[in-house]
Nucleic acid binder design. Structure first.
Lengths: 262, 262
DNA sequence: GAGTGGTCTAGACCACTGT
DNA sequence: CAGTGGTCTAGACCACTCC
């Protein structure tokens, strides 16, 4: 015999999948479910917890439990890289009004709120290995938060690392007050004579940490996409590495790979 | 004041992050925690549930609660596409002994167990839109499961769709008993004169459904990576679309984008 | 104030693991 | 068999939302 909370969860899940309960609809209240199922409060709650962990429902304290509504997706393509490279050499006037995020979202600079902070750190063992430098090497750690001006939470958490020796010949690159930098990282690197040859992106997925869920405003039952982006210059050196955390329920990454013709 | 279960969870999380509790270590038993914290059983359980949802711990009925151990990752690169394209034209002898999965995992054919099933379906509205065909168009739906022979669960769930009209001139392509096909889908398509020009991959992340968690053997507190791969031929037609579900805790996808030189 | 979900208690019994 | 986590009950009180 199935467990009581599973029976309740199965019943509700079936109703959602069949469309009898659609996105945004309110589920029966917990006390209703206690009455109709003849089960205790905690048992009903466990059933709802299961559905919440699956990302099917969302509880709203004091209002009720609702079928989760899909969020408007943000698309992020790898065509952006060639676009960013080209833009790095564009005249400043052109670089000012637009960034890669604006390109992804189709929005203007005014619709987005941008925040950056710089800090100098020494490379930890793990980071040193990933960057191919010695442990303790001086790095510039830059953290970025970007959000829609209409929303409370950022839609990505970015930590970027530069090797200080490579960039310090331009002191502006160590100064966070110069952000947002027209033309972004790619233009910053150009000012110290660096051209990017290729981008490597490593993607994994996992549940958010409490801190990530908090910063991104993620409800229970969502995942994050974790992207580690590495920029290689034309001498095959790693010149930047960044970790990007994206909400899994609203991010779609599109990678296009072109192949040689026969 | 913080909630009781959060205090307990915070304390244990801090111990794990500090390394005082390492991967594979057993946590204090629930009854121990009831004694040491002076809280009730359900409260302690809720604290552990929080950590489980974060993917930090794993409960084993009758044995105890353990710090989650990272699983051996499977890497999947987009360099595989050019490799698959090249292999599609290789002599059969060469195609027999190796596939893209073997390439990704570095294993031989004997270490992997392969299963395929074919079915004919009509295109649903959603699928028709994604494939760019009319609703109801005849499709060949192929489902694949591949697992390590040493493990019980497959490491990916694949559903592939072909447009029947495009492939039926070679009846072997409608016959699941011809699987595993040497040279895979790319060679199958070559037999009906199709050359692939580019691959589009859309990646998102979410918690697994119950069915996915069951098939992939995923413990609570893991996510799945969902990949929708679309193959375009040299006439810019969509010739295959597949949905791949991968365990987020053991899959790393690597995408390399090469850029034009200045 | 009525209705909702959130937290917590005290305790019972079951199911699984290892000795 | 002892120890572990899994399920379930009956009920209390709190916190939030909306009217």
């Amino acid at each position: 015999m199935a467990k009581a909370y599973e029976e309740i969860a199965d019943e509700l899940r079936a109703q959602i999948r069949a469309g009898r309960l659609g996105p945004g609809d309110r589920l029966p209240s917990e006390s209703d479910l206690v009455r109709t199922t003849g089960r205790s409060g905690p048992t009903v709650q466990q059933a709802l917890r299961v559905l919440q962990a699956e990302g099917l429902i969302e509880k709203q304290h004091g209002r009720g439990t609702f079928v989760r509504r899909p969020r408007t997706p943000i698309e992020r393509t790898n065509a952006r890289h060639q676009w960013e490279k080209d833009r790095a050499r564009a005249p400043e006037r052109q670089r000012l009004g637009t960034g890669a995020t604006e390109r992804d979202t189709g929005l203007g600079v005014d619709d987005l709120v941008f925040h950056a902070a710089y800090r100098e750190i020494g490379a930890s063992k793990e980071i040193a290995a990933a960057l191919g430098v010695a442990e303790g090497t001086a790095l510039v750690e830059r953290t970025y938060r970007t959000r829609y001006s209409a929303e409370r939470n950022p839609f990505s958490l970015v930590t970027s690392l530069l090797i200080r020796d490579l960039v310090q010949q331009n002191p502006d690159l160590l100064d966070e007050t110069k952000e947002p930098w027209p033309g972004g990282t790619w233009n910053q690197l150009l000012t110290v004579g660096i051209e990017i040859d290729r981008v490597e992106e490593r993607v994994t997925a996992r549940p958010p940490t409490v801190e990530e869920a908090d910063e991104l405003g993620l409800p229970p039952g969502t995942s994050v996409l974790v992207l580690r982006k590495t920029l290689y210059d034309t001498d095959d050196r790693i010149v930047e590495m960044s970790d990007v955390t994206l909400p899994g329920d609203r991010t779609e990454m599109l990678f296009t790979t072109h192949l040689e013709r026969w």
